[in-house]
Structures are given as C-alpha cells and as structure tokens.
Amino acid sequence: MDSNTFIPQAFIDKMINILPEQLNIDDLLSACRRPLRRAIRINTLKISINAFKLIAQKHAWSLTPVPWCKEGFWIDIEDESIPLGNSAEHLAGLFYIQEASSMMPVAALLSHFQPNKTSTLLDAAAAPGSKTTQLASATNNQGLVIANEYSSSRIKMLHANIQRCGIQNVALTHFDAAVFGQWLPNTFDAILLDAPCSGEGTVRKDKNAMKNWQQSAIDSIALTQKELIKSAFQALKPGGVMVYSTCTLSLEENQEVCHSLQQTYPEQVDFLSLNNLFEGAEKTLTEEGFLHIWPQVYDTEGFFVAAIQKTGFVESEPAKETIRKIPISTYTSNH
C-alpha cells in the first residue's frame, strides 16, 4: 500500500457519485494505492504459448492467465537481479510487457471482427505499440495494419517495438487522427481508437498521475475525444467495427463520448455488447454493453472499452487540399 499516491478530493467526490451501487469508494481508493500487478503478453509470431511456458519454468517465472487474452499472463519473478525488460526473451521480442486491462481493447475488437489477409485495420493512436503488436500478432502478419501516432516523440518507440516483435504487416503514419474521416472515408474494416485521455486509471503505476487533475482539463480533452471518434467512425467501412477505449474513469471521456457519436449518427451507430468477452465481464458491464473497468474489480488499471458497429454509410466533409511550397535547390556536381 502506498500512502503517497496522490488522489485529489475532488476526484474522490466525483467517483462517489458515479460508482455502480455494488461498488464502494473505499475499495476503489485502496486499489488505486496498491502496486500494479505486472503482466506480459506472449508474442505468438515468434513463439508458441506452450514453448514460452517452458522458458518461464526455467526462469522460475510464475504465470497466471489473464481471462480476456489467451496470450496474456500476470507474471511473478523470484530473481529480480535482471529486470524483466532487460531479459533476453524480451529483447528478442518473445513477449511484450503490457498491463492486463490494456489487452482488453484488441480482445474486444477481435470478439466482433475476424481479420483476414485482405483486412485493412487502423490503430489511430498507436504508440508505444502494445495494441498494434497485439493486433499484428492476432492477424498473423496478414492484411494491413496502419499504426498512426500524432506525437513525434513517441514514434521511435512505436517503430522499435514493431521491429522487436517481428511485425511485417504494419505501416506507420504520423498524423492527427482527426484527419482520417476526411482523407480516408469508408476505408477501414476495423479501427481501434485508444484515445488520449486524462489517465485516471494509471495511478497504480504512477502515484503522481493525478497531481494535476482538474475537471476543466477533462472537459477539454473530452471535446478532442469526440472529434476523434467521429473522424474514426467516418473512416470505418459500413459494416465495420470500431473499438473506443481509454485508461480513465470519468463518464465524460467514456460513455458520453460514445453517446455523442450515437447522437450524431443515430441510424448508423450500433453498440455491440461485450458481455461475453470473458467470464466475469458482467461485473463491469454497463447498460449499453460497454466495459467500465474499475481497478478493484479485476485488480488492474482503470479502463474503458466500447465496441461499435457502423451499420450504414455516413457523409464526411471533403478533404481540403493544401498546396505547400516545396523548397527546391539546384544541385551542381563538382565532378
């Protein structure tokens, strides 16, 4: 238990008002102050689950299955002399260090969409690459995964993780994800939008994650999230499936973002229930069929996952081409 974890009173008061009746605030705060369980996802592009379990036995690594991801395991290590991230197996890309609830969005997408060798998928906010590599592994390097990241400082890590994991069907792009609806309307078979958020659910791995928590910041980022989900929905093919996820708890960044999309496209938005995603999913299932993951329920980070199907064509504004002057200098050879 870490009593130094900063949890603002305004956040506590807010959570009291939105917690489901079967949960209580003391359990939430206690969970937020506990260290996060370490988890990994086996990279089946490079090794089978059974073969990795044999390696784990040799290292005395204890593996406990993550219910919603057959490749995912919580891991306990006896010998901490070599950090897990520096192990030969990690450096070789045999596994990816990934928080357990972070594995849920891709699992949710795959529960309603079966990729094939002609599928085109978009990971709209991809860095550092945990969900991109999970998608690529699930497709067995077939089809095409566009991994987009807006933050230039994070693209190197995304690229490094893709290379380390032996990914061959991913193309990197560097755009504001809000452009996809205009530039590539009705293009993608499936889309994962793990949206930038206030990160309320990450306090277990960063005790200062809520040091600058403000309601005004949540209201502001929710506006960005609504823009991103609308653009992603426009870029989705009719009949396609999109998963919207965050690592935060506030309704404004989760349910209300999905409701805003449905209000914009009432005839084309169908919320797909995640009640059968894994045994115990009903403990965090909302009335819409979303999963609102409270940290104390599965002993994970806080998370939110929604699956949405596009049932028909929607209009998007045509892209406005901008002509930029490209500097050209004459090259004169001295030879």
Results as ranks from 00 to 15, higher is better:
residue 192 L to C: 08
residue 193 L to I: 07
residue 150 Y to Q: 08
residue 188 F to W: 06
residue 156 K to S: 14
residue 175 F to Y: 12
residue 160 A to H: 10
residue 201 G to L: 11
residue 158 L to R: 03
residue 132 T to A: 02
residue 175 F to H: 12
residue 172 L to F: 08
residue 161 N to H: 09
residue 199 G to Y: 09
residue 190 A to T: 04
residue 137 S to I: 04
residue 191 I to E: 09
residue 176 D to V: 05
residue 181 G to S: 13
residue 178 A to F: 00
residue 143 G to D: 05
residue 213 W to N: 08
residue 143 G to K: 03
residue 199 G to C: 09
residue 144 L to E: 02
residue 153 S to I: 03
residue 148 N to D: 06
residue 190 A to D: 03
residue 159 H to D: 14
residue 132 T to W: 02
residue 176 D to H: 06
residue 194 D to C: 08
residue 132 T to Q: 02
residue 183 W to M: 10
residue 200 E to I: 13
residue 202 T to F: 13
residue 146 I to E: 00
residue 175 F to I: 00
residue 131 K to T: 05
residue 202 T to W: 10
residue 196 P to T: 14
residue 210 M to H: 12
residue 136 A to Q: 02
residue 136 A to N: 05
residue 213 W to G: 07
residue 178 A to T: 12
residue 203 V to T: 14
residue 209 A to C: 13
residue 179 V to F: 13
residue 156 K to T: 10
residue 168 Q to C: 04
residue 142 Q to K: 09
residue 208 N to I: 10
residue 144 L to D: 03
residue 157 M to S: 11
residue 161 N to W: 01
residue 209 A to Y: 11
residue 189 D to W: 02
residue 147 A to D: 01
residue 199 G to M: 10
residue 197 C to G: 07
residue 191 I to D: 07
residue 160 A to K: 10
residue 164 R to K: 11
residue 147 A to C: 06
residue 165 C to N: 08
residue 154 R to L: 03
residue 193 L to P: 01
residue 201 G to R: 11
residue 137 S to P: 00
residue 204 R to N: 08
residue 171 A to Y: 01
residue 203 V to Y: 08
residue 185 P to F: 13
residue 140 N to M: 02
residue 147 A to Q: 01
residue 140 N to C: 02
residue 163 Q to M: 11
residue 209 A to L: 10
residue 201 G to E: 09
residue 186 N to Q: 14
residue 210 M to R: 15
residue 138 A to E: 06
residue 150 Y to F: 11
residue 139 T to L: 01
residue 163 Q to N: 14
residue 152 S to Y: 09
residue 212 N to M: 14
residue 149 E to G: 00
residue 149 E to Y: 04
residue 214 Q to L: 15
residue 153 S to H: 03
residue 180 F to V: 08
residue 161 N to V: 03
residue 172 L to H: 07
residue 161 N to Y: 06
residue 146 I to D: 03
residue 162 I to R: 01
residue 164 R to T: 02
residue 182 Q to H: 13
residue 178 A to C: 11
residue 135 L to S: 01
residue 207 K to Y: 12
residue 209 A to M: 15
residue 185 P to M: 11
residue 147 A to T: 01
residue 137 S to Y: 03
residue 208 N to M: 14
residue 155 I to T: 07
residue 215 Q to G: 15
residue 143 G to Q: 06
residue 204 R to M: 10
residue 137 S to V: 07
residue 185 P to R: 12
residue 145 V to W: 00
residue 191 I to P: 07
residue 165 C to L: 10
residue 206 D to H: 15
residue 210 M to T: 11
residue 189 D to R: 02
residue 176 D to F: 04
residue 212 N to W: 14
residue 134 Q to P: 04
residue 142 Q to R: 07
residue 130 S to M: 09
residue 170 V to C: 03
residue 175 F to A: 07
residue 131 K to S: 02
residue 209 A to F: 13
residue 171 A to L: 10
